[in-house]
Write a protein that binds this DNA or RNA. Structure first.
Lengths: 131, 131
DNA sequence: GAACCTAGTTACCTTAGGGATACTGATATC
DNA sequence: GATATCAGTATCCCTAAGGTAACTAGGTTC
């Protein structure tokens, strides 16, 4: 069986690609994973690094990642509370493909943005030509 | 400069990762790219392969990929019409990281699904314990 | 001239994702 | 007793993504 073939169970909501690509597409999830790549980070630090995400949305993101077994949540019995988030082994294993994708992004996004501009301009001109 | 560092321009809507991760997260886009990995495919064929996507949504997806310079659209002057979609060089270069991610997905998604079940069960029990 | 083909549109609807804002609870410090 | 810290909740809102269903255009075949 060819290892690169495209799986046929695309309809299946549990289709591997579907499940993972959804997580990746999540606005903050992949960012959080990459931030956690350097070691455990507490909630408030995460908020600062991810800059303007609201606590509700950050919590949603973290819960989803925890549910998927990609990160762990550790509550320290302190006051004020301290909660650390950390990648699991599986979470860490995701870093590599994620980093590859990020590198691809960094080297190609300028071209993508140019393509968008060119496309949009062509569209505008077409509209002006036949109003 | 460390090649694996996390870029700071996360706020920037044009942040490379943001742009690419969004495309990947698109429900059909990454699937279409992988289908086109074997060569040009016409609209109707694409519909069959991607199985239940409606023409409107498929068109949206294809237009977005075309706009980003990842695929080309070729109209053949025939009747009935024939339109072929094909990866550009940039589109092809995306296949590699995408395939890596798919392989990661295929080997880890079963674990993810188990983790979800376990998490959800734990949640249910917690709710039953303190109603 | 009726029906069929492909590659789309058009109009409409529903839901989920994300966001803004304000509040809670437990404790320690002033 | 007022205030601060931290890690969240609760409530409400808005938009965009995705989906359904029906229709169009241009030409060909029966």
């Amino acid at each position: 069986m060819d290892n690169t073939e495209i799986p046929g169970n695309i309809l299946d909501p549990n289709c591997p690609s579907r499940v993972v690509f959804q997580r990746i597409g999540d606005k903050w999830a992949s960012l959080v994973i990459q931030v956690l790549g350097d070691g455990p980070v507490r909630f408030s630090e995460l908020r600062k690094m991810v800059n303007v995400v609201t606590p509700k949305v950050l919590t949603q993101t973290l819960r989803a990642l925890e549910r998927d077994g990609l990160i762990t949540r550790t509550v320290h019995a302190q006051v004020p509370p301290r909660v650390d988030y950390e990648l699991t082994a599986m979470g860490e294993s995701l870093l590599q493909p994620l980093t590859m994708l990020r590198h691809w992004a960094e080297s190609h996004v300028p071209t993508i943005l140019e393509a968008r501009d060119a496309y949009d301009e062509a569209q505008d001109e077409a509209l002006l030509g036949s109003p």
